[in-house]
Amino acid sequence: MKKSQFLAGLRAGSSIAIGYFPVALTFGLLAKTAGLSIIEATAMSIFVYAGASQYMSLSLIALAVDPILIVLNTFIVNIRHFLMTASLSEKMQPAPKWVKAFYSFGITDESFSVLATSKNDKISTPFAFGVTLIAYGSWVIFTAVGHVIGANLPLFLQAAMAIALYAMFIGLLVPSMKGNRKVVMLAGVAAAIHCVLYFSGFSAGWSILVATLASSIFVEVIYAKQGKNAEAMFEKEEAV
């Protein structure tokens, strides 16, 4: 039972592993061009394990920015994980604190999305380990590979694989959207707010955080006011 949950987790996480492959490969290559050794580059993927902030740190290192500012920037980019792990805490199977503290290291935008949209009522600990382990393994291994071989994938394939993580997000979202207007609204409102903030020049980290929180609260308040009456809700939406 436990083993099958772990395997199910590995399977659910395998699309993350595929999506990380080109991103990690490119990170390894860029780290090399920024002057990091293979040990330094791979260590960053092992200990930090956060795609966007790792990329940003490379450009900041290249600009010789104060390391303290790089750390601060990393924090700002990753604050949004507070929201995700708070949301996830409701769905996780009870487990000792040290176990949760251990696998929480593996929570990224992607593993969060896979875990939070899984159909299980409660997410079992072995399942969480499976999802996070395969994603983490892919990230670390392909960082090192990227540093060694460079991004030697054929160009057309590299270009196509850049879509992988977004395709995965869509693959996770669309089944939940079917016949569920609340999910459609949540995603749509968050996307709209993010768009506005993004084009107003806010950093991606902040605007994802703000858009997610604003959409989740806005939609919840509307639902709390309107009850579950879909018709009334729809009219209300148009009036707004």
């Binding site: 939940s176 949540l186 409102v189 997610t212």
Partner: peptide, 19 residues
């Protein structure tokens, strides 16, 4: 309720406009 909404809102914000 708000916390349960977060996964779907996050997905919307992650996909668009970055895709």
């Amino acid at each position: 309720g708000v916390l349960r909404n977060i996964p779907y809102a996050v997905l919307g914000a992650l996909i668009f406009p970055a895709i």
